[in-house]
């Protein structure tokens, strides 16, 4: 197993290199010029050129790419063109809120979606099943920002139970941390809950028709034991796969959710950087997200072996 993990980690290197080249090339050919944005409306073309030179943007593509890769290899993601702060520091500032949001959303999703899917499969065809699947369709259909606004209106403005916006670090207390994340996590989690509930239901339906489930019932095992010990464990591999793939959904959704709830996370940093053409920041974030995604896939592969002992690498 250890050698497999090491092999996979080594295999991420070419993936990351391709991502790096792709991101750098894409930004190089994309329209827009940070020097123009920095120079402002009053600037002369000479001023813009001078800023471009000071940022090194006037150098040939290969020189810029080479110098960027060299810095990356030395652990330096570069400096933001606009804030003049290290990209790693900017990412560090924003990592906490985004990780918190994703963790709470993931937890909420697993706690809500898996039992819902199991119950829907158990009661397949019944009113309960239809209600749950109805909610799933609802969750799929509503955009994150619509859910966000609705939640903020009801729970923050009307009921005044929770704050509208912001983020409080965990170090300042558990409740202040959590109360800022409840609404965003629900908004972000809606589509994810819908997806996993449906997958769980479909997989469970298949498993519940297997012979060993009939045998378990014949042995007189209780419904809970059948569903959660025997059936769910065997249905877990596809569910875990979808949870992993869904991390990408979360990353995309976090961009919108963080804007709606004014959470200072990586999603907002990404949008700000793109709008201003802050190339080093965009490159740093995309590299980070790519790395996280590769890592999550690796984790999923490892989890397979835990939930299904037949899988060995």
């Amino acid at each position: 197993m250890l050698s497999y993990i090491l092999r996979r980690i080594v295999a991420t290197l070419p993936v990351m290199a391709i991502v790096a080249l792709f991101v750098f090339s894409l930004l190089y050919i994309a329209p827009g010029d940070p020097a123009v944005v920095i120079a402002g409306d009053q600037a002369s073309p000479e001023d813009v050129e001078r800023i471009r030179q000071s940022l090194g943007l006037d150098r040939p593509f290969l020189v810029q790419f080479g110098s960027w890769v060299w810095r990356i290899l030395h652990g330096d993601l570069g400096t933001s063109i606009f804030t003049n702060l290290p990209v790693s520091a900017l990412i560090g500032q924003r990592l906490g809120p985004t990780l918190s949001l994703m963790m709470v959303t993931l937890l909420l999703t697993i706690v809500v979606a898996v039992p819902l899917g199991v119950v829907a499969a158990w009661k397949a065809g019944s009113l309960i099943d239809r209600v749950i699947m109805g909610f799933a369709v609802f969750g799929f259909s509503l955009p994150v920002f619509v859910v966000g606004y609705m939640l903020a209106y009801v729970f923050a403005l009307e009921l005044e139970w929770l704050p509208v916006q912001g983020y409080t670090p965990l170090a300042q207390g558990f409740w202040p941390w959590l109360e800022n994340l409840i609404l965003p996590a629900i908004a972000l989690g809606c589509v994810y809950i819908a997806l996993i509930a449906r997958i769980t239901r479909a997989t469970m339906l298949e498993v519940l028709q297997q012979d060993y489930i009939r045998t378990a019932r014949a042995k007189g095992l209780g419904q809970g034991g059948i569903l959660f010990v025997h059936a769910l464990k065997n249905a877990a591999v596809p569910i875990v796969t979808v949870i992993g793939i869904g991390i990408a959904l979360l990353i995309g959704g976090a961009v919108v959710t963080e804007s709606v709830f004014a959470i200072p996370g990586l999603g907002r940093l990404t949008i700000d950087a793109i709008l201003r053409r802050d190339y080093p920041v965009i490159q740093g974030i995309v590299l980070l997200f790519s790395f996280v995604y590769v890592l999550v896939n690796l984790m999923i592969d490892v989890i397979y072996t835990l939930v299904d002992p037949r899988i060995r690498y």
């Binding site: 606004y149 209106y153 704050p163 916006q165 912001g166 804007s259 709606v260 709830f261 004014a262």
Partner: peptide
């Protein structure tokens, strides 16, 4: 200074006293 990219959020935060 609290930066809020979304005007609807800023409006809600002002109404809520945040």
């Amino acid at each position: 200074w609290v930066v809020m990219p979304d005007p609807a959020t800023a409006a809600a935060a002002l109404q809520n006293g945040e």
